[in-house]
Write a protein that binds this DNA or RNA. Structure first.
Lengths: 179, 179
DNA sequence: TTGGCTATCCTTAGCAT
DNA sequence: CATGCTAAGGATAGCCA
Protein backbone atom coordinates (compact mmCIF):
# COMPACT_ATOMS: atom_id res chain seq x y z
CA UNK A 1 0.00 0.00 0.00
CA UNK A 2 1.22 3.42 -0.98
CA UNK A 3 2.48 5.41 1.94
CA UNK A 4 1.30 9.00 2.35
CA UNK A 5 3.80 11.54 1.17
CA UNK A 6 3.05 14.05 3.90
CA UNK A 7 1.00 13.94 7.03
CA UNK A 8 -1.00 16.84 5.69
CA UNK A 9 -2.22 19.82 7.61
CA UNK A 10 -2.51 19.25 11.32
CA UNK A 11 -4.88 20.97 13.65
CA UNK A 12 -3.23 23.49 15.92
CA UNK A 13 -4.38 25.43 18.91
CA UNK A 14 -4.69 29.17 18.55
CA UNK A 15 -2.03 30.13 21.05
CA UNK A 16 1.47 31.54 20.82
CA UNK A 17 3.77 29.22 18.91
CA UNK A 18 6.70 28.40 21.14
CA UNK A 19 9.25 27.43 18.50
CA UNK A 20 10.70 30.60 17.11
CA UNK A 21 11.32 29.16 13.68
CA UNK A 22 7.82 27.79 13.24
CA UNK A 23 6.41 31.01 14.54
CA UNK A 24 8.27 33.02 11.94
CA UNK A 25 7.22 30.72 9.13
CA UNK A 26 3.63 30.88 10.25
CA UNK A 27 3.75 34.65 10.38
CA UNK A 28 5.10 34.84 6.88
CA UNK A 29 2.61 32.44 5.37
CA UNK A 30 -0.45 33.67 7.20
CA UNK A 31 0.43 37.29 6.54
CA UNK A 32 0.49 36.54 2.85
CA UNK A 33 -2.81 34.75 3.14
CA UNK A 34 -4.30 37.65 5.07
CA UNK A 35 -3.22 40.16 2.43
CA UNK A 36 -4.67 38.04 -0.32
CA UNK A 37 -7.95 37.72 1.55
CA UNK A 38 -8.07 41.48 1.95
CA UNK A 39 -7.33 41.92 -1.72
CA UNK A 40 -10.15 39.60 -2.67
CA UNK A 41 -12.52 41.38 -0.31
CA UNK A 42 -11.77 44.68 -2.00
CA UNK A 43 -12.16 43.36 -5.50
CA UNK A 44 -15.31 41.37 -4.80
CA UNK A 45 -17.17 44.03 -2.85
CA UNK A 46 -15.56 47.24 -4.02
CA UNK A 47 -14.61 48.03 -0.46
CA UNK A 48 -11.53 49.80 0.77
CA UNK A 49 -9.16 48.21 3.22
CA UNK A 50 -5.82 48.67 4.87
CA UNK A 51 -3.78 46.25 6.94
CA UNK A 52 -0.73 47.07 8.98
CA UNK A 53 1.23 44.34 10.72
CA UNK A 54 4.38 44.23 12.73
CA UNK A 55 6.19 40.99 13.42
CA UNK A 56 7.95 40.35 16.67
CA UNK A 57 11.18 41.06 14.87
CA UNK A 58 9.95 44.59 14.41
CA UNK A 59 9.44 44.46 10.68
CA UNK A 60 6.38 46.23 9.39
CA UNK A 61 4.29 44.98 6.49
CA UNK A 62 1.33 46.79 5.09
CA UNK A 63 -1.36 46.32 2.53
CA UNK A 64 -3.85 48.84 1.28
CA UNK A 65 -6.48 49.34 -1.35
CA UNK A 66 -6.49 51.79 -2.93
CA UNK A 67 -3.61 52.59 -0.59
CA UNK A 68 -2.71 52.27 3.05
CA UNK A 69 -2.50 55.98 3.60
CA UNK A 70 -5.79 56.83 1.95
CA UNK A 71 -7.68 54.37 4.13
CA UNK A 72 -5.80 55.29 7.27
CA UNK A 73 -6.22 59.00 6.65
CA UNK A 74 -9.92 58.57 6.17
CA UNK A 75 -10.11 56.53 9.33
CA UNK A 76 -8.22 59.14 11.30
CA UNK A 77 -10.38 61.91 9.90
CA UNK A 78 -13.48 60.10 11.03
CA UNK A 79 -12.32 59.04 14.46
CA UNK A 80 -10.21 61.93 15.66
CA UNK A 81 -10.65 64.78 18.04
CA UNK A 82 -14.01 66.30 17.19
CA UNK A 83 -16.11 63.77 19.01
CA UNK A 84 -18.75 66.27 20.00
CA UNK A 85 -20.29 66.19 16.54
CA UNK A 86 -22.82 63.61 17.56
CA UNK A 87 -24.35 64.61 20.83
CA UNK A 88 -26.48 62.08 22.63
CA UNK A 89 -25.30 58.67 21.52
CA UNK A 90 -21.74 59.82 21.06
CA UNK A 91 -19.17 57.41 22.43
CA UNK A 92 -15.47 58.22 22.57
CA UNK A 93 -13.80 56.71 19.55
CA UNK A 94 -10.95 55.53 21.69
CA UNK A 95 -13.24 52.94 23.18
CA UNK A 96 -12.91 51.06 19.97
CA UNK A 97 -9.58 49.85 21.27
CA UNK A 98 -11.08 47.99 24.12
CA UNK A 99 -13.73 46.59 21.88
CA UNK A 100 -11.23 45.16 19.50
CA UNK A 101 -9.20 43.74 22.33
CA UNK A 102 -12.22 42.00 23.69
CA UNK A 103 -13.73 41.23 20.31
CA UNK A 104 -13.03 37.54 20.30
CA UNK A 105 -13.72 36.67 23.90
CA UNK A 106 -16.82 38.76 24.27
CA UNK A 107 -18.24 37.78 20.90
CA UNK A 108 -17.76 34.18 21.91
CA UNK A 109 -19.49 34.73 25.21
CA UNK A 110 -22.37 36.41 23.46
CA UNK A 111 -22.37 33.53 21.06
CA UNK A 112 -22.61 30.95 23.80
CA UNK A 113 -25.20 32.98 25.60
CA UNK A 114 -27.29 33.18 22.47
CA UNK A 115 -27.19 29.44 21.98
CA UNK A 116 -28.38 28.85 25.52
CA UNK A 117 -31.32 31.18 25.19
CA UNK A 118 -32.01 30.63 21.55
CA UNK A 119 -35.44 29.18 22.22
CA UNK A 120 -36.69 31.84 24.56
CA UNK A 121 -35.34 34.81 22.64
CA UNK A 122 -36.64 36.53 19.62
CA UNK A 123 -33.69 37.32 17.43
CA UNK A 124 -35.60 40.19 15.89
CA UNK A 125 -35.41 41.98 19.18
CA UNK A 126 -31.64 41.91 19.21
CA UNK A 127 -29.59 44.72 17.74
CA UNK A 128 -27.47 43.90 14.76
CA UNK A 129 -24.19 44.44 16.55
CA UNK A 130 -23.17 42.99 19.85
CA UNK A 131 -21.40 46.17 20.81
CA UNK A 132 -24.57 48.15 20.35
CA UNK A 133 -26.21 45.76 22.72
CA UNK A 134 -23.32 46.19 25.10
CA UNK A 135 -23.74 49.91 25.06
CA UNK A 136 -27.41 49.83 25.68
CA UNK A 137 -27.05 47.53 28.62
CA UNK A 138 -23.96 49.17 30.01
CA UNK A 139 -24.31 51.40 33.01
CA UNK A 140 -22.64 54.76 33.42
CA UNK A 141 -20.10 53.24 35.75
CA UNK A 142 -19.08 50.62 33.25
CA UNK A 143 -18.74 53.24 30.59
CA UNK A 144 -16.53 55.37 32.79
CA UNK A 145 -14.41 52.36 33.62
CA UNK A 146 -13.89 51.77 29.93
CA UNK A 147 -13.03 55.40 29.33
CA UNK A 148 -10.55 55.37 32.17
CA UNK A 149 -8.77 52.30 30.84
CA UNK A 150 -8.77 53.95 27.46
CA UNK A 151 -7.02 57.01 28.76
CA UNK A 152 -4.34 54.85 30.29
CA UNK A 153 -3.94 52.91 27.09
CA UNK A 154 -3.57 56.18 25.25
CA UNK A 155 -0.73 57.18 27.54
CA UNK A 156 0.99 53.87 27.06
CA UNK A 157 0.68 54.23 23.33
CA UNK A 158 2.05 57.74 23.37
CA UNK A 159 5.06 56.60 25.33
CA UNK A 160 5.56 53.69 23.00
CA UNK A 161 5.39 55.95 19.98
CA UNK A 162 8.02 58.17 21.51
CA UNK A 163 10.21 55.16 22.07
CA UNK A 164 9.80 54.17 18.47
CA UNK A 165 10.66 57.65 17.34
CA UNK A 166 13.89 57.55 19.34
CA UNK A 167 14.75 54.12 18.07
CA UNK A 168 14.39 55.33 14.54
CA UNK A 169 17.32 57.67 15.07
CA UNK A 170 19.73 54.89 15.90
CA UNK A 171 18.48 51.93 13.89
CA UNK A 172 15.99 50.94 11.27
CA UNK A 173 14.57 47.96 13.10
CA UNK A 174 11.10 49.42 12.97
CA UNK A 175 11.23 50.56 9.41
CA UNK A 176 8.93 48.94 6.90
CA UNK A 177 10.69 46.38 4.80
CA UNK A 178 9.86 48.19 1.61
CA UNK A 179 12.00 51.19 2.42
CA UNK B 1 -31.64 8.73 -3.09
CA UNK B 2 -31.40 11.57 -0.65
CA UNK B 3 -31.24 14.92 -2.35
CA UNK B 4 -28.50 17.34 -1.33
CA UNK B 5 -29.72 20.03 1.01
CA UNK B 6 -27.64 22.77 -0.53
CA UNK B 7 -25.51 23.00 -3.60
CA UNK B 8 -22.58 23.86 -1.40
CA UNK B 9 -19.96 26.48 -2.04
CA UNK B 10 -19.48 27.40 -5.65
CA UNK B 11 -16.35 28.71 -7.23
CA UNK B 12 -16.49 32.38 -8.05
CA UNK B 13 -14.30 34.72 -10.00
CA UNK B 14 -12.46 37.40 -8.09
CA UNK B 15 -14.20 40.37 -9.64
CA UNK B 16 -16.78 42.87 -8.48
CA UNK B 17 -20.03 41.18 -7.53
CA UNK B 18 -22.80 42.77 -9.54
CA UNK B 19 -25.77 41.91 -7.36
CA UNK B 20 -25.88 44.41 -4.57
CA UNK B 21 -27.37 42.09 -2.01
CA UNK B 22 -24.92 39.28 -2.60
CA UNK B 23 -22.10 41.80 -2.56
CA UNK B 24 -23.20 43.04 0.82
CA UNK B 25 -23.47 39.57 2.29
CA UNK B 26 -20.07 38.67 0.94
CA UNK B 27 -18.56 41.79 2.44
CA UNK B 28 -20.02 40.99 5.80
CA UNK B 29 -18.93 37.37 5.86
CA UNK B 30 -15.50 37.88 4.44
CA UNK B 31 -14.83 40.85 6.69
CA UNK B 32 -15.57 38.66 9.68
CA UNK B 33 -13.31 35.97 8.30
CA UNK B 34 -10.57 38.50 7.69
CA UNK B 35 -10.75 39.81 11.24
CA UNK B 36 -10.62 36.32 12.64
CA UNK B 37 -7.61 35.50 10.50
CA UNK B 38 -5.88 38.60 11.75
CA UNK B 39 -6.74 37.69 15.31
CA UNK B 40 -5.27 34.23 14.87
CA UNK B 41 -2.15 35.67 13.30
CA UNK B 42 -1.61 37.90 16.31
CA UNK B 43 -2.17 35.15 18.83
CA UNK B 44 -0.10 32.56 17.01
CA UNK B 45 2.90 34.74 16.24
CA UNK B 46 2.67 37.47 18.85
CA UNK B 47 2.50 40.03 16.10
CA UNK B 48 0.60 43.28 16.09
CA UNK B 49 -1.96 44.07 13.44
CA UNK B 50 -4.60 46.56 12.48
CA UNK B 51 -7.25 46.37 9.80
CA UNK B 52 -9.45 49.20 8.63
CA UNK B 53 -12.19 48.59 6.09
CA UNK B 54 -14.89 50.69 4.58
CA UNK B 55 -17.83 49.15 2.78
CA UNK B 56 -19.39 50.76 -0.23
CA UNK B 57 -22.18 51.89 2.01
CA UNK B 58 -19.63 54.03 3.78
CA UNK B 59 -19.55 52.13 7.04
CA UNK B 60 -16.17 51.70 8.63
CA UNK B 61 -15.10 48.58 10.48
CA UNK B 62 -11.81 48.17 12.21
CA UNK B 63 -9.84 45.53 14.02
CA UNK B 64 -6.68 45.97 15.99
CA UNK B 65 -4.35 44.13 18.30
CA UNK B 66 -3.48 45.39 20.75
CA UNK B 67 -5.49 48.27 19.27
CA UNK B 68 -6.08 49.96 15.96
CA UNK B 69 -4.63 53.25 17.08
CA UNK B 70 -1.47 51.82 18.60
CA UNK B 71 -0.61 50.00 15.39
CA UNK B 72 -1.60 52.88 13.15
CA UNK B 73 0.27 55.41 15.27
CA UNK B 74 3.37 53.29 15.14
CA UNK B 75 3.01 52.95 11.41
CA UNK B 76 2.61 56.67 10.96
CA UNK B 77 5.56 57.38 13.21
CA UNK B 78 7.71 55.09 11.11
CA UNK B 79 6.58 56.22 7.69
CA UNK B 80 5.99 59.93 8.07
CA UNK B 81 7.91 63.10 7.38
CA UNK B 82 11.47 62.36 8.35
CA UNK B 83 12.39 60.22 5.38
CA UNK B 84 15.91 61.56 5.19
CA UNK B 85 17.01 59.36 8.07
CA UNK B 86 18.25 56.72 5.73
CA UNK B 87 20.31 58.32 3.05
CA UNK B 88 21.28 56.20 0.08
CA UNK B 89 18.62 53.53 -0.22
CA UNK B 90 15.90 55.83 0.98
CA UNK B 91 12.69 55.61 -1.02
CA UNK B 92 9.74 57.93 -0.51
CA UNK B 93 7.24 56.25 1.74
CA UNK B 94 4.43 57.36 -0.50
CA UNK B 95 5.59 54.88 -3.08
CA UNK B 96 4.19 52.19 -0.89
CA UNK B 97 0.79 53.13 -2.23
CA UNK B 98 1.64 52.19 -5.74
CA UNK B 99 3.24 49.00 -4.53
CA UNK B 100 0.15 47.93 -2.73
CA UNK B 101 -2.03 48.76 -5.65
CA UNK B 102 0.08 46.65 -7.91
CA UNK B 103 0.79 43.98 -5.33
CA UNK B 104 -1.42 41.32 -6.78
CA UNK B 105 -0.83 41.84 -10.44
CA UNK B 106 2.88 42.35 -10.22
CA UNK B 107 3.43 39.56 -7.75
CA UNK B 108 1.54 37.31 -10.11
CA UNK B 109 3.62 38.40 -13.04
CA UNK B 110 6.76 37.80 -11.08
CA UNK B 111 5.33 34.46 -10.10
CA UNK B 112 4.66 33.44 -13.67
CA UNK B 113 8.01 34.71 -14.73
CA UNK B 114 9.72 32.71 -12.06
CA UNK B 115 8.00 29.52 -13.10
CA UNK B 116 9.14 30.00 -16.68
CA UNK B 117 12.74 30.53 -15.74
CA UNK B 118 12.84 28.28 -12.75
CA UNK B 119 15.39 25.98 -14.34
CA UNK B 120 17.80 28.62 -15.48
CA UNK B 121 17.67 30.73 -12.36
CA UNK B 122 19.41 30.32 -9.10
CA UNK B 123 16.94 31.25 -6.43
CA UNK B 124 19.81 32.08 -4.10
CA UNK B 125 20.66 35.00 -6.33
CA UNK B 126 17.27 36.59 -5.91
CA UNK B 127 16.56 39.11 -3.20
CA UNK B 128 14.09 38.08 -0.56
CA UNK B 129 11.42 40.50 -1.62
CA UNK B 130 10.16 41.18 -5.08
CA UNK B 131 9.94 44.88 -4.46
CA UNK B 132 13.60 45.04 -3.57
CA UNK B 133 14.29 43.41 -6.88
CA UNK B 134 12.00 45.90 -8.55
CA UNK B 135 13.91 48.75 -7.08
CA UNK B 136 17.25 47.49 -8.11
CA UNK B 137 16.18 46.97 -11.68
CA UNK B 138 14.16 50.15 -11.94
CA UNK B 139 15.64 53.02 -13.85
CA UNK B 140 15.62 56.61 -12.67
CA UNK B 141 12.86 57.41 -15.13
CA UNK B 142 10.66 54.68 -13.80
CA UNK B 143 11.25 55.83 -10.28
CA UNK B 144 10.34 59.37 -11.16
CA UNK B 145 7.22 58.19 -12.92
CA UNK B 146 6.21 56.40 -9.75
CA UNK B 147 6.92 59.42 -7.64
CA UNK B 148 4.90 61.64 -9.93
CA UNK B 149 1.87 59.37 -9.80
CA UNK B 150 2.31 59.24 -6.07
CA UNK B 151 2.16 63.00 -5.77
CA UNK B 152 -1.05 63.05 -7.72
CA UNK B 153 -2.52 60.32 -5.59
CA UNK B 154 -1.58 62.32 -2.54
CA UNK B 155 -3.53 65.27 -3.84
CA UNK B 156 -6.54 63.14 -4.57
CA UNK B 157 -6.41 61.73 -1.09
CA UNK B 158 -6.13 65.14 0.48
CA UNK B 159 -9.17 66.33 -1.41
CA UNK B 160 -11.03 63.22 -0.46
CA UNK B 161 -10.18 63.67 3.18
CA UNK B 162 -11.46 67.22 3.03
CA UNK B 163 -14.69 65.98 1.51
CA UNK B 164 -15.05 63.46 4.29
CA UNK B 165 -14.45 66.13 6.87
CA UNK B 166 -17.20 68.28 5.42
CA UNK B 167 -19.56 65.34 5.17
CA UNK B 168 -19.06 64.64 8.83
CA UNK B 169 -20.67 67.96 9.62
CA UNK B 170 -23.93 67.14 7.91
CA UNK B 171 -24.32 63.39 8.26
CA UNK B 172 -22.81 60.35 9.88
CA UNK B 173 -22.68 58.22 6.77
CA UNK B 174 -18.95 57.84 7.10
CA UNK B 175 -18.88 57.28 10.80
CA UNK B 176 -17.73 53.97 12.14
CA UNK B 177 -20.58 51.70 13.12
CA UNK B 178 -19.44 51.51 16.70
CA UNK B 179 -20.14 55.15 17.38
C1' DT C 1 13.36 33.36 5.18
C1' DT C 2 10.92 31.70 0.85
C1' DG C 3 8.59 28.16 -2.14
C1' DG C 4 6.65 23.64 -3.44
C1' DC C 5 4.16 19.45 -2.02
C1' DT C 6 -0.03 17.02 -0.03
C1' DA C 7 -3.34 15.62 3.30
C1' DT C 8 -6.23 17.76 6.28
C1' DC C 9 -8.61 21.66 8.50
C1' DC C 10 -11.07 25.82 7.67
C1' DT C 11 -13.81 29.26 5.05
C1' DT C 12 -17.60 30.40 2.54
C1' DA C 13 -21.37 30.63 -1.74
C1' DG C 14 -25.97 30.04 -2.13
C1' DC C 15 -30.36 29.93 0.45
C1' DA C 16 -33.29 30.85 4.12
C1' DT C 17 -34.31 33.32 8.47
C1' DC D 1 -26.71 44.00 7.86
C1' DA D 2 -26.11 39.50 10.34
C1' DT D 3 -26.64 34.28 11.32
C1' DG D 4 -27.38 29.08 10.50
C1' DC D 5 -26.83 25.20 7.33
C1' DT D 6 -24.22 22.19 4.07
C1' DA D 7 -21.22 20.87 0.57
C1' DA D 8 -17.42 22.30 -2.09
C1' DG D 9 -13.53 25.39 -2.61
C1' DG D 10 -9.42 27.22 -0.26
C1' DA D 11 -5.93 27.94 3.03
C1' DT D 12 -2.10 25.86 5.41
C1' DA D 13 0.97 22.70 8.99
C1' DG D 14 4.59 19.86 8.57
C1' DC D 15 8.50 18.52 5.64
C1' DC D 16 11.93 19.37 2.23
C1' DA D 17 14.73 20.74 -2.60
Amino acid sequence: MMQKKTQGRKKIEIKIIADENRRQVTFSKRRTGLFNKASELCVLTGAEAAIITQSRGGRVFAFGHPSVDSVVDKYLAGSSKNIAVNEVNSIPTSMQENFNQKYKEISKEIEDEKKKNVLEEKLEDNPNFWWEESFEHLGIEELEKYIASMEQLKDNITMRVDEMAMLRNSSNASLPSWI
